[in-house]
Design a binder for these strands. Structure first.
Lengths: 343, 343
DNA sequence: CTGTTAGCGCCTTCAG
DNA sequence: CTGAAGGCGCTAACAG
């Protein structure tokens, strides 16, 4: 039950009768170290299973090879897939990932980000869910030299890298396509508009109607703060409208669509014959429903990869003192027909 | 564009003309500090937005308030739910979470754990996926004073906390119950036996047959390394057996069951009238299939919570130099009838 | 109650 | 090419 300590540089230094700084240099492949001693040191290091202490390194260099990631919650699979992409890239580049979820309030969100910054992470990939009236705390973090990359949401005030999926275009194009093929009465199950993705998807829906000169029926936009409200919303709708009045239901996301699917099935409404149903996000489970859910694909994992590449780029540039030009990368979405739609 | 530095203790010290250690003590609520100066210091700290540097603290105290979590992969929703539980508890207790995925080889797995240990995390919650012939590296980490808690898998050689779901009993009880109600011919879609959960679920199946004196038909155990092999396996089975020869298909997990579901539907086999189907794990998506999947529930989020509580306990005991008695907590599973089974 | 000092493990000048 | 010394930010032991 020996509480063994990790071997440190000074352990090596003693073991080899060399100065600690020589050891340090050798291990960092400093050019001005004798090749033979370097080899000697490295061997000894391996023998004693030396592993540098990232805390000490971080304290010294003000930079740990660690990337922070902030999620609003672990609720949807989408984040999971993004994370997988991030994970892959970062580990390839030798970075650790430290994850924090922001919880349910903007105060917690702020705290989570600040806590990450105090860990001297090399950069933070941020999914923000709340509207921050005063985003200056984000700018403060950038000023401390920590690159921020925002996912899926744009802040006009903040100069940074952005990776977003094209929510607007995805919805717009798809609805447009349905209309042009004769679909008339289209519902939208709208998400929480505080969240920009919900806002943009709704916007895509509206614009597509507008473009086709279809007047907006307010009853056809059903606001749901959460997927649990979907069924009630639909019940209301159908208390006022007949089955024939509705052709297609579009949704803020796949989870909303799953709820709608259940509702329709419970009421013996056939999909897609009676009503078509369209999700958004292409969650992996959407292939398992029956009928299989048609949806709009979002390249989640790829978004993670791209985000990682971008923030790594920025980090590198900063380290070398070069200037860096921020980018906004829009990931394209596309309509994925399965069984819950006809077209 | 000022590259502002974070405010440190010595900044406060200068600003207030007080010794740095007084500042430190005041901020840590050390009893022997004058209440007025303490108040003064805290106000100044807030004013300058002082936040302690966890790297420095960690270096000093050999203990960061951080918990490492190792996952084999981000593939299944189960981990996600466990993570949610961990997340909740840890943030309540003021711990950060640092996540690492182990990747596809035992070498990477080892590296991931060691890397976490070098971060001086306060503890590590470990999902191991591979068989390690020489688990001494795990013991080394324990010797360094870092508590390890293993999830969902037991290592006889390693003294530690364990949280596992009762795979054996879950499968055993359920199959037993089906048999006692007259179900005869039961298939098991077996997972990769390297993984102990797969092994235990298979074992539960076998023992249930044994207990009821049903002889084991080797054709009825279909080994699948991965869910992608399920359909082929079933195709083979049905090339040899008729529909009437099979009453129930049990599965290593829900994903296997989803594949089986697809296969059965593709072949116009009715569920549950012709064949019943039983999953394992109660993945959230299992309610969205049709028919809805009957499964064996695993309390994923709760497992995360319990694991967190246990490792936090151990950490606390260690810090106070008390002795600590390791526990093995078995989370109970239960049969959850939905629509894909009759009983 | 407060100040002084040393050190956690590492890197980086500056000398030699 | 190698050694000595200082410091990153913080805490803890020892004085006063």
């Amino acid at each position: 039950m020996k509480k063994s300590r990790k071997t440190t540089l000074s352990d090596l230094s003693k073991a080899l009768n060399l100065n600690i700084s020589t050891i340090s240099r050798a291990l960092n492949d400093h050019p001005k170290v004798n090749e033979t001693t370097k080899k000697l040191i490295k061997e000894k290091a391996k023998e004693l299973d030396y592993r540098p202490n990232p805390l000490a390194q971080g304290l010294q260099k003000q930079n740990t090879k660690t990337i922070g990631v902030i999620f609003p919650t672990f609720d949807t699979n989408f984040f999971f897939r993004v994370l997988k992409g991030i994970e892959k890239m970062m580990h390839e580049s030798g970075y650790q990932i430290i994850i924090s979820t922001a919880g349910e309030s903007r105060i917690q969100e702020k705290k989570a980000i600040q806590s990450l910054s105090s860990y001297h992470v090399s950069g933070i990939i941020v999914f923000l869910s709340f509207e921050h009236e005063d985003p200056s705390f984000l700018i403060d973090i950038q000023d401390e030299g920590i690159p921020l990359l925002f996912m899926d949401r744009i802040y006009e005030e903040i100069d940074a890298n952005y990776v977003i999926s094209d929510d607007f275009v995805g919805m717009y194009d798809t609805v447009n396509q349905f209309i042009s093929k004769g679909t008339k009465n289209i519902i939208h199950l709208q998400g929480n508009l505080q969240i920009s993705t919900a806002f943009n998807r709704l916007l895509g829906y509206k614009e597509a109607l507008l473009k086709n000169k279809i007047s907006l029926n307010p009853d056809f936009i059903i606001p749901c703060q959460h997927q649990t409200e979907v069924k009630t919303g639909l019940r209301n709708l159908f208390s006022k409208y007949a089955l024939e009045d509705i052709d297609l239901i579009t949704c803020y996301n796949d989870y909303y669509a799953f709820q709608a699917l259940e509702f329709l099935k419970e009421n013996n409404i056939r999909i897609p014959q009676d009503i078509q149903l369209l999700g958004f996000a292409n969650e992996p489970l959407s292939v398992y429903t029956s009928p299989k859910l048609s949806t709009i694909n979002q390249p989640a994992e790829e978004m993670g990869v791209i985000a990682s590449e971008m923030i790594l780029q920025e980090i590198q540039h900063n380290q070398q003192g070069e200037s860096y030009q921020f980018l906004t990368k829009k990931m394209s979405t596309f309509y994925l027909k399965r069984e819950s739609t006809l077209l």
